[in-house]
Amino acid sequence: MLPNEPSGSSWRANLIGLQTIVIKEVTRLLRIWPQTILPPVITTTLYFIIFGKVIGSRVGTMGGVPYMQFIVPGLVMMSVINNSYSNVVSSFFSSKFQRNVEELLVSPLPNSIILLGYMSGGIARALLVGCLVLLVSMLFMQTTTLYSIPITLAVAFLTAALFSIGGFLNAMLARKFDDIAIIPTFVLTPLTYLGGVFYSITLLPEPWQTISRCNPIVYMVSAFRYGILKHQLSSDMIDIEIGLAFAAIGLFIVGLFGLALWMLKQGIGLRT
């Protein structure tokens, strides 16, 4: 076998390529842990202290659970969203900026593997930070039991996957470092804060309730809250029916994944 021939079948070669990108991405996020892991944990702990303990004690209960407990799923989801997005957008844009993305573009790896590789870095960071934030939240919550670990994990995983693709698209289109901050600042943050992290959208008057249902983050926060608090929360505080939430997240993933593959094929932002 020649070294320049793929070892075994091409799917095996692609799998090795994917493994290589995953190791590179995970090594990167662990190497710079003071930038990638620590800050989101500290920020979310502050949210728990301020909104949960200080303000939450005055709010009382929401849907039958203490306010502190109500906001935990939303805050964990906020970490998952921000970290999956920012990991991929900064890593892929840095690769573009330093031009080492060319290492991948000249290689025989298919576009789908490149995309999956970067997504895996975003998912790894989001789940790691999400778990740490959840652990910290246990210190503030009165209960440590989750309603459904599989649902909780599935929602976190799919949300991280979705926002990893979002970060990838942003990095493809970005031309300078300022461009990678625009979407998180002007789109993600408002959508997250208005996505039912701190309240249930059922508390909103119309038309704001209907408008909120157009916000994709509402579906993720609601599904995650379902996975964690369903057994304690009154049913009117679950904003979106769980099946619908999964379907919406799935559709968003398929749509954005397809868009990212198309953009990679066209070479948008990568090839001249």
């Binding site: 793929p6 692609n14 090795i16 390529g17 493994q19 190791i23 690769s95 290492e103 991948l104 790896l109």
Partner: peptide, 19 residues
């Protein structure tokens, strides 16, 4: 290449990209 990676890492990664 990624200026922040080690020499060996850079070459090994390229080998990985080629399967």
């Amino acid at each position: 290449f990624n200026q922040f990676e080690q020499v060996q890492q850079i070459v090994m990664q390229q080998a990985g990209y080629y399967g």
